[in-house]
C-alpha cells in the first residue's frame, strides 16, 4: 500500500507495457511482412512434412499417458512449492519454531515423493 501511495505510477503498468510491446513486435513482424513476401502455394508445398512421403494415419492421435502423469505430478509439487514461498520470504525474521513447521511440511510431502518414486512414477516408460 505504502509503495502505491508513494509512487504516483502503479508498478503494474510496467508488465502491461511490456505485454503490449511484445504483442506489437509479434503482430507487426507477421502482418507488415505480408505486403513484402510472395505467396505461391502449391499442393505439394502445403502437405504436412513427413520426409517426402504422403502422410500416414491421423496426426492428432493418441500419445503416451506418461505426458499426462508428468503434468499431474508437476502440478502437485508446484502447489507444494507455492506453500513455501510465503514461508521463505519471512524465514529470516522468525525463529526455530517457524523452521520446524516448514520441516514438517516438507517431510510429509517427501513421503509422497518417495512413494511416487517407489511406484515408478518417475520412470519414463
Amino acid at each position: 500500500m505504502s509503495r502505491l501511495l508513494l509512487s504516483n505510477v502503479s508498478p503494474y503498468w510496467g508488465p502491461l507495457l511490456m505485454l503490449l510491446g511484445a504483442v506489437c513486435v509479434g503482430l507487426g513482424a507477421v502482418v507488415i511482412g505480408r505486403f513484402f513476401r510472395s505467396s505461391r502455394p502449391t499442393r505439394e508445398k502445403l502437405e504436412p512434412y513427413e520426409c517426402g512421403n504422403p502422410a500416414i494415419g491421423d496426426t492428432r492421435g493418441r500419445f503416451s499417458v506418461k505426458f499426462y502423469s508428468v503434468a499431474m505430478l508437476f502440478l502437485l509439487f508446484d502447489a507444494e512449492a507455492l506453500f513455501l514461498w510465503p514461508w521463505a520470504a519471512q524465514y529470516h525474521a522468525e525463529g526455530l519454531f517457524f523452521l520446524f513447521e516448514a520441516l514438517l511440511f516438507i517431510v510429509i510431502v517427501g513421503i509422497g515423493y518417495l512413494y511416487a518414486w517407489r511406484k515408478g512414477a518417475f520412470e519414463w516408460r
Binding site: Y68, E80, I108
Partner: peptide, 19 residues
C-alpha cells in the same frame, strides 16, 4: 498449512493410481 501437505500426498496417491 500442514494439512496442505497431507492433501498433496493424497493427490499424489490418486494420480499414481489413476495412471
Amino acid at each position: 498449512f500442514e494439512l496442505g501437505s497431507v492433501l498433496v500426498v493424497a493427490a499424489i496417491l490418486g494420480a499414481i493410481l489413476m495412471v
